[in-house]
């Protein structure tokens, strides 16, 4: 028995942050699932098609029989409904993070030196995931994914409204260029989600905090955990 009890690690998330986080997560799943099926109707890369079972947009056989349409209409309905959810949740999340100082307190400071240090430690499985405090890799990833969502919204507008917002597509190198950017942004977000969910599985208390608002745990004492 040690004489001094180690202080508990505490993580809290305010209600607006939690709600907008989960709505954004739901919207991203909707956008990716429906986006994959829309992609399949005119693939950008000939070698890549998404299995229909992993896409969103209703039963393909039924849509083919009913309308001679491979379920693209259903996917488009989801995509252009999901965009409002995504944009709304994103705006709330960003506004909350900026105006309450949450981003400044928890995502800053961050720089290339601390990122490299923590990234190397993580690659060697030597980085502790402490509850309630983000390491530099996490900070960079959170800024990165928030920037990616903004990129998806802007490139999405360029694809949805290539006439009304013509100057936008020029920035992306044309309509087809905007489609490629929209695709690559999706791929990067999927990459983020894989790492994000994997780490939540490793530190399940973060899930409790993001859902119920607060979680505590004793600090890890084993080395290299």
């Amino acid at each position: 028995m040690s004489a001094v009890e180690p202080t508990l690690e505490v993580q809290t998330h305010a209600l607006p942050a939690r709600i907008s986080h989960w709505l954004m997560a739901l919207a991203v799943v909707i956008m990716i699932g429906s986006g994959w099926r829309i992609y399949d109707s005119e693939p950008i890369f000939g070698f890549l098609r998404f299995p229909y079972a992993m896409t969103l947009g209703g039963d393909v056989g039924a849509a083919l029989a009913r309308n001679n349409d491979p379920g693209v209409a259903g996917a488009l309905l989801w995509h252009f409904a999901g965009m409002w959810l995504l944009a709304g949740a994103y705006l709330v999340f960003m506004a909350w993070g900026i105006f309450t100082g949450h981003f400044r307190r928890d995502f800053l400071p961050v720089g290339p030196v601390s990122f490299l240090r923590d990234f190397i430690a993580a690659a060697r499985f030597r980085l502790e995931h402490r509850l309630g405090e983000y390491n530099a890799v996490q900070r960079v990833f959170y800024w990165g994914v928030l920037a990616l969502v903004a990129l998806m919204i802007v490139s999405g507008i360029a694809i949805w409204k290539p006439v009304q917002s013509y100057p936008l597509e020029v920035v992306f190198g044309g309509f087809q260029g905007a489609r490629v950017v929209h695709f690559l942004g999706m791929a990067a977000i999927v990459g983020f989600m894989v790492v994000h969910v994997a780490l939540v599985v490793l530190v399940p208390k973060t899930f409790v905090a993001m859902t119920l608002g607060r979680a505590t745990q004793r600090p890890h004492t084993e080395p290299g955990a």
Binding site: V29, I32, A53, M54, G58, D59, V197, A198
Partner: peptide
């Protein structure tokens, strides 16, 4: 974590879209 990602993928493949209420909501947004 691999398992939970797989579950996430399966959720997208279900026939949620063909549900009548879901159709009404989606058409309403359209």
């Amino acid at each position: 974590s691999g398992f939970s990602l797989g579950t996430l993928g399966l959720l997208g493949g279900c026939n949620l879209t063909d549900n009548e209420t879901v159709q009404e909501v989606l058409t309403g947004v359209s």
